[in-house]
Simulated assay, not measured.
Amino acid sequence: MSKSFPSETFMDASVASAGHELERLLQIMARLRDPETGCAWDVQQTPATVAPYAIEEAYEVSDAIDREAWGEVADELGDLLLQVVFQSRIAEESERFDFAGVTRRIADKMVRRHPHVFADAQDIREDRSALSAQWEQNKETERKARAEHGALAGIPLALPALLRARKLAARAARVGFDWPDVSGVVAKVHEEMAEVEAEIASGDRTALQDEIGDLLFSVASLARRLDLDPEACLRQANAKFTRRFEAVEDVLAENGQTPTDCDVEKLDALWRQVKAKEKS
């Protein structure tokens, strides 16, 4: 069965509607930032003070998608878009760039990185390995144009640590710095765990922090080799822990108790019961 796509008429109407709403949003932001009649809070913001909100909103988008809460996804994407508009407006006021420049750059970049779609490159259109190589070649060209040198250049420091670890390991692997198979990564995880245990025994907290960091990095590398996202794995573990711990609290509440009323042995026993119930 062929995939169904919206008609050209529908797409044209959607683009026109999007343009209208985007223009409205830009006007709203301009009014909010007006030093005379705008919102005092919005006027006071700087690129640095607004930046953390973009990270927060991106995570809220991801969370809504994970929960398949599609109505919330639309809301959260709007919140994320607002951060782009907000930063662009602040930059425009200082004549650094504007929203049109932002959209133009990403549009140009997408065309540049997809020559198999926007240029005569039919021979690689169906070859995924060729597409991946072309994508990385284009990104490397862009990094060189920004005077970024080295295999690890351009990986943002502000990324969540596990995500950045995965990207660092993946970038190093492209130039041959990687284990030949996944067993080497598993062995590295065990090696780092042994070093953590040794530092626990030594009592050297500085060295212990360093070794735990190495352990986490090796686990992120293992996830990469298994084609898994370590951030997604940890989010899943967080959700599972939350679900099971709250189930333990519910069991205790039925008897008028809370976790603080119990010793660790009882809590562990309840935890095992909840875990077994989930798997049954």
Rank of each mutant, 00 (worst) to 15 (best):
N238V: 04
P156T: 06
A145C: 02
L80W: 12
D123E: 15
D227H: 14
A51L: 14
V50M: 05
E265C: 01
L26D: 00
L163E: 11
W70A: 04
A247P: 00
H190E: 13
A91V: 03
V85Q: 10
A223R: 02
L215T: 04
T206A: 05
D79G: 11
L208K: 07
G176C: 03
E68H: 14
D123S: 15
F86G: 06
T49I: 03
E231I: 13
A207C: 13
R205N: 14
G71E: 14
E136R: 14
T49C: 04
D261C: 05
Q27K: 06
V61A: 12
D250Q: 09
L25Y: 05
W271S: 05
I124Q: 05
M11C: 10
E254H: 07
K266W: 09
R235E: 01
I155S: 13
V185N: 05
F97R: 06
A239H: 08
W70M: 13
A18D: 09
H149F: 10
D75T: 03
R104E: 15
A119P: 01
A253C: 00
P180Y: 01
T258L: 05
D127S: 08
E8P: 10
Q122Y: 10
T49E: 11
E195R: 09
G150K: 12
N138I: 15
Q209N: 09
W271G: 02
I90Q: 07
E231Y: 10
R272S: 12
W41T: 13
T49S: 13
V264C: 02
D34K: 01
S129P: 00
A220P: 06
V117Q: 15
A169W: 04
A16G: 11
A145F: 11
L77R: 12
A161T: 06
H20P: 01
A130D: 08
H190N: 11
D214S: 09
A121M: 09
D42M: 14
W135G: 01
Q44R: 15
K275H: 12
A145P: 00
S221R: 06
F245I: 00
G184M: 01
A100E: 03
F177P: 00
R205S: 15
